[in-house]
């Protein structure tokens, strides 16, 4: 048990992490392409048109995985923030920081595709539905985290401050979610619920699962690439970095303190 733990801790060293990530990225990247191809094929050609919504429902194959990812990634971000605050593991902050733009992108994607789906289905791009509103607030939480991390020059302070903010945000997410839901039901009563839709055909479900897997693989690949770049930047004075990028590489020649 303890041997296993030590073996895993090895990857919290920036150097080991960099090379492990480099080996993993192609696997996850190609898996994302594969799952997306399967999911899009089933979604566009195999799954039948919905008897109520026609073809417009197909946007759900992007929308639902994006919405799932937006929430999972925030939880993951808060988890890494906790690790960073409690154990002061530098790489946890690298991971948290690398997750944030992808999470924000998926949140935006969920809102955007939701609006595009809402127009033909509900007749409007935007309603103040509880889900939509809490998703929008989630986007603000992501932007706050990114903004705070970028605004502080001192790297150690930025990491700890942004981590604390992410944790405070995570504590607040359920409160925000329930208050928004309550506000909405009080004012207008839920007009359309996703749970009220007829049960899904098997082909629709498998396309959805394939797209969700593709989103996961894409997120992992992109986050690892971003984390690799961040590692190189932070460790630019380390010997192994000059071996990786070469002596004429820009990370070593531009010696600007961040």
């Amino acid at each position: 048990m303890s041997d296993d733990a030590i073996r895993w801790m090895k990857y919290s060293s920036p150097r080991n992490f960099y090379f492990l990530a480099g080996r993993l990225v192609p696997w996850f990247g190609w898996a994302a392409v594969l799952f997306a191809a399967i999911g899009l094929y089933i979604g566009f050609f195999v799954a039948p048109a919905d008897y109520q919504q026609g073809d417009s429902y197909r946007i759900m194959f992007i929308h639902v995985p994006a919405a799932w990812m937006s929430m999972f990634l925030y939880l993951l971000l808060a988890g890494y923030a906790l690790i960073n605050v409690v154990w002061r593991i530098k790489m946890a902050d690298v991971m948290a920081r690398s997750l944030a733009p992808t999470g924000a992108m998926f949140t935006f994607l969920a809102l955007w595709t939701g609006a595009l789906w809402g127009k033909p289905t509900w007749g409007t791009y935007w309603v103040w539905d509880a889900r939509l509103t809490s998703e929008l607030i989630l986007l603000f939480l992501y932007l706050g985290y990114i903004g705070l991390h970028n605004a502080i020059d001192d790297r150690e302070r930025a990491a700890r401050a942004a981590s604390l903010l992410a944790m405070v945000g995570a504590v607040n997410v359920p409160i925000i979610y329930f208050s928004v839901q309550w506000w909405n039901t009080l004012h207008q009563g839920a007009s359309i619920t996703v749970t009220g839709a007829p049960t899904m055909a098997w082909s629709m479900f498998s396309a959805l699962i394939a797209m969700a897997l593709a989103s996961w693989m894409y997120s992992i690949a992109v986050v690892l690439i971003r984390a690799q770049a961040e590692t190189l930047k932070r460790e630019r004075f380390a010997a192994w970095v000059s071996e990786v990028v070469g002596d004429d590489g820009s990370p070593t020649t531009s010696r600007i303190r961040n």
Partner: peptide
């Protein structure tokens, strides 16, 4: 407390706090 002495702290604190003020 988080934005003490930070560039553009005044505007930043609005972005950070408004989501938490919603409930």
């Amino acid at each position: 407390a988080l934005t003490l002495g930070v560039r553009g702290g005044g505007a930043l604190v609005v972005v950070l706090m408004v989501p938490l003020y919603v409930p």
